[in-house]
Design a protein around this nucleic acid. Structure first.
Lengths: 172, 172
DNA sequence: CGCTATTGAGTTGTGCACAACTTAATTGCG
DNA sequence: CGCAATTAAGTTGTGCACAACTCAATAGCG
């Protein structure tokens, strides 16, 4: 994992440098802008597509997991989605209010709450089959490109997740 | 945790379909998951890195634009960042409370509010030069990979932004 | 067994994104 | 000129993400 980056020491001595500190700030801007913009653009498309299902994007993600795995405790759901109870609890309450899931305390472990799609929640799956096709159309990418992009993003996520424990962020 | 999932069509058997509707839902999950996860992971790293600057990630983006362009009306700021006044107004108010920017009505057009970094805001730029290096280190990517990824994401964003006007979402 | 540490949900508070709306200033057309 | 349409900020309300916390149940150790 080498960053060819690390070698150019920034700035203060000047003329010959290819990238003074201020340029770094601009380059950095490009990267974070792009990821952020793509994420929000995606969100916007999902918002439109999911509108007639009555779901938000995060709610859709929860339903995807439930459709695939069936009943799950909140904890497991959070592991699949990388979300904690602080986010999931209110979200699941809204899904329950919408009649799409039921929540009930586990008998074997009273701490655990099991989330289960209702009949209505399962029925929604049929209507949701249209969603991926519409999203795919909106991206304008073919399957290979999508998979390639996914691979790169997953690698990036894995690298970023490992941050905070190693010395990468230490000043010196 | 890699999902090589897409290949096995576990199925409902079927005629010659390689991807029944339920598999589409799973594949779709992979794509949106990846982008969403990467975006949030990135955000998490920025949160750590920006902590001692006292900035959130969106606030940092605003400061980047102001460092590059100097004084700007809220409108222009929003165009650079793809954000509207509903997001920017409270954010700028917090930046002003932190002493990093000043907001003042334009004399020539009373509707417009110009945002200008204060001395303190400009001074912060020096400390911020550390940020891109730390982020780059966290990604574990070299410059070429980053730029390639950026290109792909920008193309994706452009495609997604064009959604809603064309027939892409129509059932058929 | 009893007690402490851990675990799973939920709550609270902050900040962001976005839709829908309000308000005030400016534009521009008849 | 006069007035309707447009424009720039700001406000309100909803929902998500996350940190920090509470609370109850369970696990596990002496």
């Amino acid at each position: 994992m080498h960053n060819s980056i690390a070698r150019e020491n920034r700035s203060d001595t000047l003329e010959g440098m290819t990238t003074p500190a201020t340029d770094w700030l601009r380059l950095d801007q490009q990267i974070c802008f792009s990821l952020n913009a793509a994420s929000r653009a995606f969100n916007g498309v999902y918002r439109v597509v999911l509108k007639d299902l009555g779901l938000t994007y995060p709610q859709y993600l929860v339903m995807l997991v439930l459709w695939e795995h069936g009943e799950l405790p909140v904890k497991k759901l959070g592991e699949h989605l990388r979300l904690d109870s602080g986010t999931l609890s209110p979200l699941l309450k809204r899904l329950e209010a919408a009649g799409l899931v039921r929540r009930e305390r586990s008998a074997s472990d009273e701490r655990s709450v099991r989330v289960r799609p209702t009949g209505e929640g399962l029925a929604l799956r049929e209507r949701a089959t249209e969603v991926p096709r519409r999203i795919a159309a909106a991206t304008g990418l073919d399957l290979a490109e999508v998979q390639d992009l996914r691979t790169r993003l997953d690698r990036l996520t894995a690298a970023l997740d490992g941050y905070g424990t190693d010395a990468a962020g230490a000043p010196s």
